[in-house]
């Protein structure tokens, strides 16, 4: 465990809590892509199946359970509790464009051809593209509320910090996880355009348009 990893996890947790807090306080999920949130719930579900087979540490178990709970509560808020405020007309990204290639790739390129390992690989690939429906929605409506931009910033920052963590682990432990690193780079690239807007426009206007 190094500083980059801890900061990455904190950033990830902060992003999810910011989003939940925003929905809860405003009693509205306007501007949030339900499809992206459903994909994240699927990512955590398929990745954390090792909760049942493998104990790594108390920290690991607790964080996994928190991430799973947060993502399910978010999906529940969007598709049930605050469904009336959900902007489904603008959440029109075609999920099959992500799910079909990601499923195919996880069968082709994995560490071991076993169900748990294929599902873990699927979750890593899917996470790298899961934000696309949200970014698509923002480009379609042309705006994002301030809290949504903070959410996206911390969500992007988390994987960028993981990249630093992987560089650190490579040099200190000679640890190298090719699937996670390549997907993590792809994932971070998707946020670069957003990071640029967040820093240049978001801060002074309070919103990204």
């Amino acid at each position: 465990m190094n500083l980059f990893r801890i900061l990455g996890d904190v950033s990830h947790l902060l992003a999810m809590i910011l989003l939940l807090g925003k929905i809860w306080r405003s009693k509205s999920c306007r501007g949030i892509s339900g499809k992206s949130q459903a994909l994240f719930a699927l990512v955590f579900t398929t990745r954390y199946l090792d909760l049942f087979t493998n104990f790594i540490s108390l920290y690991n178990t607790v964080m996994k359970v928190i991430f799973l709970l947060c993502s399910y509560v978010t999906v529940y808020m969007i598709y049930w509790k605050f469904w009336k405020s959900f902007d489904s007309e603008n959440d029109t990204f075609r999920l099959e464009f992500l799910l079909v290639p990601v499923t195919g790739l996880s069968f082709l390129e994995n560490y071991s051809f076993t169900p748990l390992e294929i599902l873990w690989t699927f979750s890593i690939y899917l996470e790298s593209v899961a934000i696309l429906p949200q970014l698509f929605m923002i480009s379609k409506t042309g705006e994002a509320e301030t809290i949504t931009t903070h959410y996206l910033f911390f969500l992007g920052l988390y994987r960028a910090l993981y990249l630093a963590n992987w560089i650190w682990r490579y040099h200190t432990e000679n640890f190298y996880d090719q699937i996670a690193v390549v997907s993590g780079v792809v994932q971070t690239i998707f946020y670069c355009d957003f990071f640029y807007l967040y820093v240049t426009k978001g801060r002074c206007q309070g919103r990204v348009e």
Binding site: D9, D50, S57, N60, K64, S112, W120
Partner: peptide
């Protein structure tokens, strides 16, 4: 080929 390792990252 089995290159799977325990996953300690989230």
């Amino acid at each position: 080929e089995d290159g799977a390792q325990p996953k300690d990252e989230l």
